[in-house]
Design a protein around this nucleic acid. Structure first.
Lengths: 325, 325
DNA sequence: ATGAAAGCGCTAACAC
DNA sequence: GTGTTAGCGCTTTCAT
């Protein structure tokens, strides 16, 4: 295995100094055409690739962005990560991906790893360690759907309206016996709380009883099914369910079909993947692409402004996607 | 924004030499307990994080792995990337993610980016540029579902058997008028060709006519639907379809339902997400986690053996997942 | 238009 | 046990 060529090798082969090669590479300063050609020829011949690591070390900038999310295996995050990476790569940034699987310990060690690797910034959509860990990082960070904070910018979609819309969608079907299934409330994640609030407010306004299940949903399908089954049994006359995650909603839907019940299910997220698989599911659509775009824009602004206080909360609107008949 | 502490700052504060700090950090050599404590205290106080970039530069190893895939927005790749990252992170490797969106130009520039960033190796599941680009990289690489090559290890699942199984599954329903829908054949991607071969061989063996559509499927759902609709119209008496991608199969399924036809659809991939959304779909399940594990194992072996010739093709078995009634 | 030299933050000989 | 020194591959003053 031939050793990798370095800048010095190129310089020697081209008969110039390392400085000159560097100038050609970075298009800086004035270079004669003849020199440029010699250098380029040498680069070609040696199949030379500049060492970004060395470059990063010198300029104290890596163009590396860390992404911390629960798991790309979930379509919501898979699509979110896709959009973020796509937008960042167009601006010449590279993306380090971290799947925390909702484990605080992993999130913490990923955070330290990213700091050690000198990322220029981070986009965080995981919710398990205190915001103070991130504040200590002293780095441009944008959070997605996280707790409001004095120093970290948050991008989210309108979870409260989402909860309201979902509930109204069911009520519009003439159904009033409606429960809500949510993930367990996490201190740092207001989204589930807001969705719940939206649901409960609407029910209260109409004077209907409401019931929210905050579940610590297990990762495996079997466990989820068991829990859902118990809930269905407990509500034999149920007419509607607002389930704050499409995948769990899908599970509920298929159980309902099997039991030949008539329960109207509304889900949450509205990813491409789930919409393709389950076009009949009514769901609240989060603007994933727009959230990704905004998060990136804000992050790059922080990075380029020297991390000054443009911290704020941004809330993007959600929409209803009515299931196809 | 306080400047980042560096090793030298820690050394000064602790009243020792940089070397000693480095030794404490890396647990190398013999250090007195007292010194270790002083150093650790200084590290704490300064909130010091070792600069991995500088370290990488010196030791000529980044512990960085590049992942090149079409898009994490597709559940198959989303899940694949999740598993790969999870396994790699346990071995202290970091992951740079690249979404090529099936564009050769992007794939090529990602490849160069990864080389410039001194990745220790790559796992590639995209199929748009010639294998020779990768060979030039002169780096440990494992390909997933790519063309067989003399110098690059390939991990795939048994696409030929998958094609056969899918077809037999439909025949077992007593259906014989079966078509196959595949993505357009790409020179470097044998998987679609092998699935097609499996389908056609089984049909031939039974003496039934066969028809394969190799489609350049557009990215948008609308376009896909149009194409599928045309195909359905062309085959009014169709009894079965083998569609070599679950998402496209899901689209076909919902159209078939709407038209109230009786066509048995078998898909391909068997991801968690699609299985959850569409438990009634029969599909060929690729062993995503096992493929990820094997790909990582082989890659790390190449990296640690100094990239010697353990190149080979590994084919993992697929299974049938029968749709729930 | 080009080159010499210093240094980004770290580690590994090699001393003592 | 601990420190001194050189250097990983690059860029950038500061010369010329």
């Amino acid at each position: 295995m031939r050793e990798k060529a370095k800048l010095e090798d190129v310089a020697k082969l081209a008969g110039v100094s390392p400085t000159t090669v560097s100038r050609v590479l970075n298009n800086r300063g004035a270079i004669s055409n003849k020199t440029r050609q010699k250098v380029n020829a040498a680069i070609q011949e040696l199949n030379y690739h500049p060492n970004e690591i060395a470059r990063s070390l010198f300029i104290s900038k890596t163009n590396l962005i860390g992404l911390i999310f629960p798991t790309t295996a979930h379509p919501f995050y898979g699509e979110m990560v896709f959009h973020i990476e796509k937008i960042l790569s167009e601006k010449n940034y590279k993306v380090l991906i971290c799947n925390t699987m909702n484990q605080a310990q992993k999130e913490n060690s990923y955070l330290n790893m990213l700091l050690a690797n000198q990322v220029d910034g981070m986009i965080v959509g995981a919710h398990n360690i205190g915001i103070e860990f991130y504040q200590k990082a002293n780095l441009p960070i944008v959070a997605i759907d996280r707790k409001v904070s004095e120093t970290i910018t948050v991008v989210s979609s309108d979870n409260y309206s989402g909860g309201r819309l979902a509930t109204e969608e069911i009520l519009n079907q003439g159904r009033t016996k409606i429960i809500h299934i949510n993930s367990v409330r996490q201190e740092e994640a207001p989204s589930s709380y807001l969705r719940r609030q939206g649901y409960e407010d609407v029910m209260k306004e109409h004077g209907f009883p409401y019931k929210t299940y905050e579940l610590e949903l297990p990762f495996d399908t079997k466990g989820k099914k068991q829990i859902l089954s118990d809930i269905l049994n407990r509500h034999p006359d149920l007419e509607g369910m607002f389930v704050s995650d499409d995948l769990t909603a899908a599970l509920a839907l298929s159980m309902i079909r099997k039991q030949d019940k008539d329960i109207f299910v509304v889900g949450y997220d509205g990813t491409e993947a789930v919409t393709t698989c389950l076009p009949e599911l009514t769901t609240i659509v989060q603007p994933i692409k727009a959230m990704a775009q905004l998060a990136v824009d804000l992050l790059l602004k922080e990075i380029n402004s020297g991390f000054k206080d443009i911290q704020k909360n941004y809330i993007l609107p959600v929409t209803v996607r009515r299931g196809e008949k």
